[in-house]
Every structure is written in C-alpha cells, then in structure tokens.
Amino acid sequence: MAQPAQAVHGGKTGSAWWVEPYLTVLALGLFGLYSIWLVFFQHTGQFHNYLSPFFSPTQSWGIKVLPALWVLWVPLLFRATCYYYRKEIYRGFFHDPMACGIPESRRKFYFGETRFPFIWTNLHRWFWYLALVVLVFLWIDAIRAFIFPNGFGVGLGSIIMLVNVVLLTLYSLSCHAFRHLVGGGSTRFSCADGSPTTRYKLWRTVSDLNQRHGLFAWISMFSVWFTDVYIRMLIYGVIHPVRFF
C-alpha cells in the first residue's frame, strides 16, 4: 500500500481522541484495584440491615471462599463479556484500536474473538443468566434495607441500595444478549392477521433500553462502587447513618 497511515477518527484533526480510552483505563483500573482490595482485605459488607452488593448473598451453603469472591466473579464476567465494555476494553487496554483510524502498533497476531481468551465472550448470555440470579438477591437486600429493627423505615442507605439495584436491573435488561433472546433472534414480527407479535413488542422495548446500555453500564458500576463505599464508611464509623423516617 502506497499511502502512509494517517489518523482517522470521528472528529477533525487534532481532536482529543485519546481522552476516552485513557478515562476507560483509569475508571476500570481503579474499580479493579478497589475490588481486589475488597476481596483480600475485607471480610464483610454488612452494616445492620444494609449489605454491600459485593458481599451479597451472605449465605454460602458451606462453600468456603473469600466472602467477596463468592459471587463477585459473576457480575465481573458478565461485565467483562458485555458488548459495551468489550468495546471500551479493547480500545482502552488493548489499543485495538485506541480510536477510529489511529494506527496500531501491533499489526500481527490479531485473532479478535476467535481464540482463547476472547472467544469466551460468546458465553455472554450464560453470565447474563447468572447475573439475573445475583440480581434477585440484590433486590432482596434492597428490600431488607427498608426494614429496620423497629419496622419499616427509610434511611440514606436504603435509598442508595434501591437506586443501585434499579440501575443494575436497567443494565441487565438492556443487555444485547437479552435483546437477541427476547425477540431479536426471530425473523417474523407479525402474526398472520398482521398484528405485532409479543416478541416484537418485547424486542422493541428492550431495543429502546439497549440504546442506553453504555450509560447504564457506567452508572451502575459507579453505583455499586458508591454503595460499597457508603456502607464501608458506616462500618468503619467514618460517618453516621442518616435516617429519614
């Protein structure tokens, strides 16, 4: 090929195409470090009726693992194989590519998602199934967060946990694999009389949610993080619980 490589990206010459991949590395990197710290140095996420999402569920049915590791691998793999995160991870960590048209340094040995380890991304739907199970526990936790020793009540922690589980639900229900399973995989969207099928209606709804999948991915990650930070600060007594009524 005669012409030398030149940067091509969405915007104009000189636009800051490198900001996004570096921010991704920063955010995911810090979250990763925080998780590792939790796994190895923290043994509980319980503060009265509040439970950190990293440590839910608490019952382990006799299986002995580090408490945070008991379920953490599920959302971790669910997110790692997520179609949205994959884009950000390949761009940020693997520079494959960093941004559109930015020449890559490694030209050979690219196998995409055809070989180990990335061929595992094809199992995304399995992690989605498992993530749903975890989600059920998180909903139970969120409800429990409203039940105080003296009955129903609302604290800052209850609200944080509820918002967190709503965001996680939105993230899970806007998943590409779910969009496919719920109707995207079918080719017929109409009944014999011309009316839309139920699968079509579901597919439309999930498709609308799916457009914001990337947004849900980020804010639900931060909400999980924030929920743990809040509860951990309560555990350490750095702050005091706020109770509205």
């Binding site: 091509v8 969405g10 994959r86 884009k87 390949y90 590519p97 559109c100 995409g112 998602e113 055809t114």
Partner: peptide, 13 residues
C-alpha cells in the same frame, strides 16, 4: 465474524 471486536468505527463513519 469473530474477528470483529465491536469497536464500532464502522458505525461511526
């Protein structure tokens, strides 16, 4: 299709 790593530049352009 496995070679695509869904980095979406095709959609952008």
């Amino acid at each position: 299709i496995g070679y695509c790593n869904i980095t979406k530049c095709c959609t952008v352009v």
